[in-house]
């Protein structure tokens, strides 16, 4: 067991109950991701990519198997412990940006710090600077372009200086040029942190260190 693994997934499964039946979305998935590595997750719609991201991001818990994040086994941890761990460890970027419309870019970025009870203006400024939007900090989401909104969302995801950045189809709602700009931003963040992105675009996926393909609830690695 090498210590430079940020994420270790061992035979994790995820089943959902639907009415009286169950569907198995992930089955015996095992995956290791190194610190600072940039991994792309691909696969058909419904193959379980978002489910996998949610498991890594501790928004959801596996039905079986072991997941350890930064050396900590997260299976069997309490909801409260997971909230605390999630705050420190992971940042999320979503396809739909999911910014809060009533708040300015600055306030959206500050949100994780507010919840963690350690607002630091320097962190907010640094995160906004990192995505190149210092000059837009007083704008509300509606006043920003899609690409800018996604950059604000990335700033929010990295403001706590997480160890892992999870981007689920972060370019899905953007045009090609803006999309590749976002990916190069993620590329530049990898190294400082582990970046996992879900994408349907194999061109963009090639920019990552490694591509993981999900199929029928299991992993086929390429590259």
């Amino acid at each position: 067991m090498s210590d430079d693994n940020m994420i270790r997934i061992l035979k994790a499964g995820k089943r959902y109950r639907i009415g009286s039946g169950e569907i198995e979305v992930l089955r015996d998935v095992s995956l290791e991701v190194k610190k600072g590595e940039f991994v792309s997750v691909m696969g058909q719609s419904g193959s379980g990519k978002t489910t996998l991201m949610n498991l890594i991001g501790m928004l959801d818990s596996p039905s079986g198997g072991i997941i350890s994040i930064d050396g900590t086994d997260i299976t069997g941890k309490s909801q409260k412990e997971l909230v605390a761990l999630r705050r420190r460890t992971v940042g999320f970027v979503f396809q739909q940006f999911h910014l809060i419309p009533s708040l300015t870019a600055w306030e959206n970025v500050a949100l994780p710090l507010i919840f963690a009870g350690k607002e630091d203006i320097g962190y907010v400024a640094a995160a906004l600077g990192r995505v190149g939007l210092s000059h837009r900090s007083e704008h509300k989401p509606a006043e920003l372009s899609g690409g800018e909104q996604q950059r604000v969302a990335i700033a929010r995801a990295i403001v706590m200086r997480p160890k892992i950045l999870l981007a689920d189809e972060a370019t899905g709602a953007l045009d090609a040029a803006t999309g590749s700009m976002i990916i190069s931003l993620l590329r530049s963040l990898a190294g400082e942190m582990t970046v996992i992105m879900v994408t349907h675009n194999s061109e963009l996926a090639k920019l990552s260190d490694r591509i993981v393909n999900l199929k029928d609830g299991n992993i086929e690695e390429k590259k």
Partner: peptide, 16 residues
Amino acid sequence: FKEIGIMRAVGASDVQ
């Protein structure tokens, strides 16, 4: 609903 979900995803605890 969505905003509450976002807040929880970015670290809001139940108490918050």
